[in-house]
Simulated scan of single mutants.
Amino acid sequence: MNLGILDTVSLAATLVFALPIALLGIERLIAGQTLLGGAFLSIGVLMVVLREWVTTPEDVPASAAKKVVGTVAKTDDDEEE
């Protein structure tokens, strides 16, 4: 999984919000509240997973630009194959 600078910053921002929720879920699981702990843990995990899988309107121009750059400019590795 190659992440660019913007993707890395976006993932870090998502983790800032998802980690406290997941940690609360783990704390609740340890305390014996399995339903509440499982729900919080699931929400925290889903925040990160959905960020990777769901395409937002902001992602469309970026993916189009990556395809155009990939077809126009070839790297040295692409020319050798």
Rank of each mutant, 00 (worst) to 15 (best):
residue 35 L to I: 11
residue 59 D to H: 02
residue 7 D to G: 12
residue 21 I to M: 01
residue 31 A to D: 08
residue 79 E to N: 12
residue 67 K to H: 11
residue 13 A to H: 12
residue 76 D to G: 10
residue 39 A to E: 05
residue 67 K to N: 14
residue 41 L to Y: 12
residue 74 K to M: 09
residue 39 A to W: 13
residue 18 A to F: 02
residue 23 L to T: 01
residue 8 T to I: 06
residue 77 D to V: 13
residue 58 E to Y: 13
residue 13 A to V: 09
residue 81 E to D: 11
residue 25 G to F: 01
residue 44 G to V: 04
residue 76 D to C: 12
residue 45 V to Q: 00
residue 49 V to K: 02
residue 54 V to Q: 03
residue 23 L to E: 00
residue 31 A to R: 06
residue 56 T to M: 02
residue 19 L to G: 00
residue 15 L to I: 04
residue 73 A to C: 11
residue 77 D to Q: 07
residue 21 I to A: 00
residue 50 L to D: 05
residue 25 G to H: 01
residue 72 V to T: 11
residue 62 A to E: 15
residue 54 V to I: 10
residue 63 S to Y: 14
residue 51 R to V: 08
residue 26 I to S: 06
residue 1 M to T: 10
residue 9 V to C: 02
residue 70 G to F: 10
residue 79 E to D: 09
residue 44 G to W: 07
residue 75 T to P: 01
residue 29 L to F: 05
residue 15 L to S: 01
residue 69 V to Q: 09
residue 73 A to Q: 10
residue 34 T to P: 05
residue 80 E to I: 13
residue 78 D to N: 06
residue 21 I to W: 05
residue 77 D to K: 10
residue 29 L to P: 02
residue 75 T to D: 13
residue 69 V to E: 12
residue 71 T to N: 14
residue 45 V to C: 01
residue 23 L to I: 07
residue 54 V to R: 02
residue 9 V to D: 05
residue 9 V to T: 05
residue 37 G to M: 03
residue 64 A to W: 14
residue 70 G to V: 05
residue 80 E to G: 02
residue 79 E to S: 11
residue 79 E to I: 15
residue 51 R to F: 12
